[in-house]
């Protein structure tokens, strides 16, 4: 079963040394996930202020600056896990180095038809 893990954090930058450590630890953690066959996808996102939100209502397209929700904590990246069940997914997500700073939302992925 697949679980999507969304990493939410505030935009406060970490001290330089912590930043480097987090990056190195994350790389090692992602490699370990892949080695064990748990990693399905992985992406990091640019800052929330680079986002644009689009909607189409009555055929008319509107665009607004910024992320969809006005909240302090923004989506900074996500990864998709292959796990046996929720307990395994929570255990894996809880081991992500970013969990020490940010919050990680774990959600089951629905199986929908996808283009071949």
């Amino acid at each position: 079963m697949k679980y999507a893990c969304f990493i939410y954090g505030d935009d406060e930058p970490l001290p330089e040394s912590e930043q480097t450590k987090l990056r190195d630890d994350s790389i090692a953690y992602h490699q370990e996930l892949k080695r064990k066959g748990h990693l399905v996808a992985l992406e990091a996102l640019d800052d929330a202020d680079t986002a644009t939100t689009v909607r189409r209502r009555n055929g008319k397209l509107s665009m607004t600056d910024g992320p969809f929700a006005e909240v302090k904590e923004h989506l900074g990246g996500f990864f998709i896990l292959e796990a046996r069940d929720l307990n395994e997914a929570l255990r894996l997500a809880g081991d992500h180095p970013a969990a020490c700073w940010d919050a990680i939302e774990v959600r089951p992925v629905l199986d929908i038809p996808k283009p071949a």
């Binding site: 069940d85 307990n87 255990r91």
Partner: peptide
């Protein structure tokens, strides 16, 4: 059911 919370005893570490 949907998130598949397992029917198991927690791992010793948990």
């Amino acid at each position: 059911r949907e998130a598949r919370i397992p029917y198991e005893l927690p791992a010793p570490s948990e």
